[in-house]
Simulated scan of single mutants.
Amino acid sequence: MSDKNCKEVGKKTLFTIGEMARLFHMNIRTLRYYDEIGVLKPEYVNEETNYRYYSTVQFERLNTIKYLRALDVPLEKILIFLNEKEVSTILSIFEEQRERVLKKREQLSRIEKKITNRMEQIEAALTAPYGQVIVKQIPQREIVLLEKKITREEDLEPLIRDISKKTYLDDAIFLGKVGVSVSQEDLKNGEFKYFSSIFVILEDEDDFMNKDVVLQEGVYATVRYRGTHEEASSYYAMLLNYLMDSGLHIKGDSIEITMIDAGMTNDHNQYVTELQIPI
């Protein structure tokens, strides 16, 4: 029988690494790696050819490895168990793995919620009437704030990085959640050239503890338009005219959020920005 095929050594039937891989529906590279780290050593290695051979005695060990890997148990934990083969060890591994799974489930639940939030925001941005003033109640929002006078022409990205660096916020949460404000004084004077602050809106799913600033719940006069911050002036004028005609008064700084921006599309015509003025 060829050295590359199933053979008998010392009355044991041995299987080549290729046969072992086929029997257990595995990759040969995985079996070589298991050999390398000591999780599953071959029964016999031909010193001349360096071919690896496995016996049926190792089938149970490999079944155990595959079972534990299916439960996402790390290989180092599997090796500990296989070296000890104690019931208390496997129970400890199962308990630890269950805790990992529960934490992973919580993490996936947060991810699902974040995806849902973002989808709803994008769908709302795409379907909302543009250039139309809408007065609406907006709930309290928690934010991370950087108060700084900024021109509309200024690149906001370095400032966003400043917020990330100073607060240790995960950069992954910034997409579609960065806003800027025009001060109440500038709004009353009809000046829209400067921002008074830049901020990031936080969600519960962001799991950020230092939520020390809030945008108060209240009634806002809002308008959405296709475009970026640079095109906001005429829409601010629209909002202010509406407030004047309606006898309403500005209660605080504006909120200006680009709901669809360069992070989502290269087409500037698809950008959507919303202006909000508390009244």
Results as ranks from 00 to 15, higher is better:
M1Q: 10
S2Y: 07
D3I: 15
K4H: 09
C6N: 06
K11R: 15
F15G: 03
T16F: 05
M20R: 10
A21M: 11
L23P: 02
H25K: 15
R29M: 06
K41T: 13
P42G: 12
E43T: 14
N46A: 15
N46F: 10
T64H: 00
I65F: 06
E76W: 05
K77P: 00
K77V: 05
E86Q: 10
S88N: 09
S88Y: 04
I90C: 00
I90N: 01
F94S: 11
Q97D: 12
L102R: 09
L102D: 12
Q107S: 13
Q107C: 00
R110P: 00
E112G: 04
R118L: 10
A125F: 04
A128R: 02
A128N: 02
I134A: 01
R141P: 00
L145K: 12
L146V: 11
L146Q: 08
K148G: 03
E154I: 06
E157F: 05
P158L: 08
P158W: 13
I163C: 10
K165D: 14
Y168G: 03
D170W: 00
I173R: 01
G179Q: 04
D186N: 14
I198R: 09
F199L: 07
I201D: 03
E230N: 13
S233C: 03
Y236R: 07
Y236D: 09
L243G: 08
H249R: 11
I250R: 12
M259I: 13
T273P: 12
T273Y: 13
Q276N: 01
I277R: 13
P278L: 13
